[in-house]
C-alpha cells in the first residue's frame, strides 16, 4: 500500500521521539494499544504553570501510519491549552496525513493517546 508524502515524511523524520519524566507532576503520560494491529503508543505532554503544553514526546511501535499519526500530534500539541488539545479529532489527523480507510484506526490510537495523557495529568494535578 502506498503511503502519502506526509506519512513518509513523518515516518522517515519522526518529530519529538523520546520520553519525558513520568514522575514530574507537570507531565501526563498516555499509553494505548490497538489489539487488531498490535500497535503500542506512548504519548507524553508537559504543561507549564499556565496549563499550556510546552513539550510533547512519543514512542510508538507500529506501522508507518501509527508513527506518523503520533509524530504529527506531538507537533500539534505544543502551544495548545489542555482544552484545545482535547478538541483534536482522529478525523483531523487522518485528513492531514491522507490516511486510507484501513489506516484510520492509527489516527484513533493517536487521539486516544492524547486523551489518556490529559487524563493522567489531570489526575496527577488533582492529587
Amino acid at each position: 500500500m502506498a503511503y502519502s508524502d506526509k506519512v513518509l515524511d513523518h515516518y522517515e523524520n519522526p518529530r519529538n521521539v523520546g520520553s519525558l519524566d513520568k514522575a514530574d507532576t507537570h507531565v501526563g503520560t498516555g499509553m494505548v494499544g490497538a489489539p487488531a494491529c498490535g500497535d503500542v503508543m506512548k504519548l507524553q505532554i508537559r504543561v507549564n504553570d499556565d496549563g499550556v503544553i510546552e513539550d510533547a514526546k512519543f514512542k510508538t511501535y507500529g506501522c508507518g501510519s501509527a508513527i506518523a499519526s503520533s509524530s504529527l500530534v506531538t507537533e500539534w500539541l505544543k502551544g495548545k491549552s489542555l482544552d484545545q488539545a482535547m478538541t483534536i479529532k482522529n478525523s483531523d489527523i487522518a485528513e492531514e496525513l491522507a490516511l486510507p480507510p484501513v489506516k484510520i484506526h492509527c489516527s484513533v490510537l493517536a487521539e486516544d493517546a492524547i486523551k489518556a495523557a490529559i487524563a493522567d495529568l489531570k489526575q496527577k494535578q488533582a492529587a
Partner: peptide, 14 residues
C-alpha cells in the same frame, strides 16, 4: 478494532 484502552503495565511490558 475499536477499543485502545489496555492496562498500562501490560503495554509497558509489550
Amino acid at each position: 478494532e475499536s477499543n485502545t484502552a489496555m492496562p498500562v503495565d501490560f503495554l509497558l511490558q509489550l
